[in-house]
Design a protein around this nucleic acid. Sequence first.
DNA 1: TTGAAAGCGTTACCAA
DNA 2: TTGGTAACGCTTTCAA
Lengths: 346, 346
Amino acid sequence: MADKSSKTNKVSLSQVAKAAGVSKMTASRVLRGDGGYSEKTRALVMQKVDKLGYLPNRLASVFAGDQISTFVGVSIPDLGNEIFAQVLEGIDRKLGAFGHQTVLGLTQHTPEEEENWIRTVLSWQPAGLILTGRSHAPRAIEMLRNAAIPIVEIWDLNSSPLDMSVGINHFDAGFDMGRYLVGCGYRNIAYVGTSHDTANAATTRLAGFTKAVEGGGGRVTRHLCLHDTAAYYPGFYGTEQLLASTTDVECIFYQNDAMAFGGMQYCTANGMDVPGDIGIAGWGNLPIASVMPKRLTSMHVPHLKLGQVAAEMMLARLSGEPVVNYRDIGFKLIPGSTVKNVMARG
Amino acid sequence: MADKSSKTNKVSLSQVAKAAGVSKMTASRVLRGDGGYSEKTRALVMQKVDKLGYLPNRLASVFAGDQISTFVGVSIPDLGNEIFAQVLEGIDRKLGAFGHQTVLGLTQHTPEEEENWIRTVLSWQPAGLILTGRSHAPRAIEMLRNAAIPIVEIWDLNSSPLDMSVGINHFDAGFDMGRYLVGCGYRNIAYVGTSHDTANAATTRLAGFTKAVEGGGGRVTRHLCLHDTAAYYPGFYGTEQLLASTTDVECIFYQNDAMAFGGMQYCTANGMDVPGDIGIAGWGNLPIASVMPKRLTSMHVPHLKLGQVAAEMMLARLSGEPVVNYRDIGFKLIPGSTVKNVMARG
DNA sequence: TTGAAAGCGTTACCAA
DNA sequence: TTGGTAACGCTTTCAA
């Protein structure tokens, strides 16, 4: 009547073994395909596995053996930003194909959230961690060091990573964009992005951008929308706010293509011609760019690939292969036609 | 020289206990804040925890005690579709706020992928599962039944769910859109979406849509782009293909707003006026709609809320509260101005 | 080819 | 307020 097994009605290895009339060990070996058993035994055990609907308890096996867990913790700032959704997709697809599972952490760009998440996820004994960004709370860094597991920092390339790093140099990417716009003749340039408590890749990018623009004799007016994900509408109203408080802006550089598109919509809706009256530049070469009537001036970064490469580095490390712990996946400026060469006319 | 502890250099509870000169049990109680110890003991133990940098091993505690795991498995078709990214964000934020972790599974809309993922994730003894969609492989269903853990099926409302269900009735939503377009006077209507091996919510929607249109004396020409995520560019080229092979289409209904936007860009780029020459209707009321020059005719579904509600149902169930196991979160037609009332002129 | 015993880090249960 | 012991499901190690 009452099942002897305590609370759960889960089928355990010993029940399978008992049903098959062999020891736990033999059943265990069969299930892992370790070898060291007869074909007859194997067939018998597998039959019982099917019959009883046995599912291994990985909690127990990882815990018991020295086995490595198949969990990989992945921290992502937010999914409202399509860039990170793509990165996550790249990571999870690759990881999943190799039998690993993603434990997600949405950190909202704050080191505190990240620290808490790291503490929790480490307690699950993950095989490794993939973290977006390079700045972490001091206590997080300490925990990461102690954990002694593979760690990949992605997005903002870190020349002295905790362990491994993939991404691009955002300062350089920002600088290149700044130089390009200055080269087009723009001097009075604005930046519209979102604002966060912490320095992140966008901040670094803006620093590089500003350096290039100022170095070229121009100046950058910043407008940061508070606490919003970098999406279409913040681009729209950020532009509205910017233009209400500033005059003579010749060109706007946005945190990403979504914001750039939103901004461009604001401009055209208000009778401005792009790039005739104002130049627009985005960042990321996102899917939306593929259907815009004018090619958006932007910076291509292979997001999906970034995720895949991060996962590959993790997997290689986990399987003991040699790994380069630093990979620049590069970026490419897309001139587009939403900015024009101002020099040409004056 | 050599640390006695086997392979890992991880600090265990007994090491903390030993350092503090108490038993494992006392240390354990302190860490869980169970009560049943003196303040002096507590302080001593906590001091050693800090000093040694002890992190609990949740694998062990979930395994040992009757404790419930804090993992919740979440399956999502793909993240290229902004709708699902929003749903996932809603789920993870809510779950995270209550100390639970999301184990992600990207199923690519295939029941096989889902089945494999379910098998794996169940082996980690999750507290519960949140699954997108209502159709699952037979063996998956069997495993889910045996697992006897809370399960929330989301997106396509299931009147006889495995356990719990949140979402909307996609047939009805499709029907409403069909009725609306017919009511505007359109008769020769096309549908552009992506094609998958399995029936999914979009399929159901299309069925409802078709029924309404045909019931109103119209007809639906379908064009499905193979194996693409429902994004901007497939909407663009899907429209191109459709219009190349069909004539007299008066209005196009898309799988979602992203595709609708892509399609609209194709139309305007090719000299068609929207809605003058052709009507456009999307689905989802996605962020992109907020910056479009014309309000896009669409169907609003609260995606983020959907995710939050799913997580809330899961959390309520896990904490033993009474839960309604079926929740229709509703949808709302957005008339917009990318379709027009054709009746008016004829 | 097979099995018995010990142990992984923690908690439940009972005793002191 | 504390501690000892057993147990969770599995694997490692060693012996048969």
